[in-house]
Amino acid sequence: MLAGSVGLTAMLCFLCFGVFWLAVPSNPAETDNAAFIFTVIPAPTLTATPEGYLTPTPTQALVSADGIAVGAYVQIFGTEGQGLRLRSGPSTDFPPLFLGLEAEVFKVEDGPKLGNTYTWWYLVAPYDKTRSGWAASTYLSLVEAPTDVP
């Protein structure tokens, strides 16, 4: 009888511990490529300035971005052979400078800037600095830095 209840307690403990242990690693998996907990605590509304500078921020903002950043290399993809217009400014309001080719690789040198709902990056071709302009991130994918860049 005593041995039975000890056994039961031990089993319950093991179960609880086991469940807890299983629950812990499943959390980061939800965040996928952002493998850390990211929290924004809004300022109390009382401290807002009269012009109301506070914008509502979700308390937990997990953003999976495409990983593009200044200094990274990107490749034009998904244009179905049409290429991508590189423009003189970060929006489709700016005139195109030239057509980037599908699969062409560029170095990201500025950005991101928001313009007509796209995120824009300033790209420069590693072999020809004159091939440079702003491109929408929709048709860019991150690639490894070319090994033979000067």
Binding site: N33, A34, A35, F36, F38, V40, Y53, T55, T57, A61, L62, V63, S64, A65, D66, G67, I68, A69, V70, D110, G111, P112, K113
Partner: peptide, 25 residues
């Protein structure tokens, strides 16, 4: 005054300030 902070992939955060500056990664 921080307006917005976002994760950039899994290697950086980008910050937007109340004066509109948002280029820092």
């Amino acid at each position: 005054r921080l307006r917005k902070i976002e994760a950039v992939g899994a290697y950086a955060v980008s910050v937007e300030w109340e004066d509109g500056h948002h280029y820092g990664i």
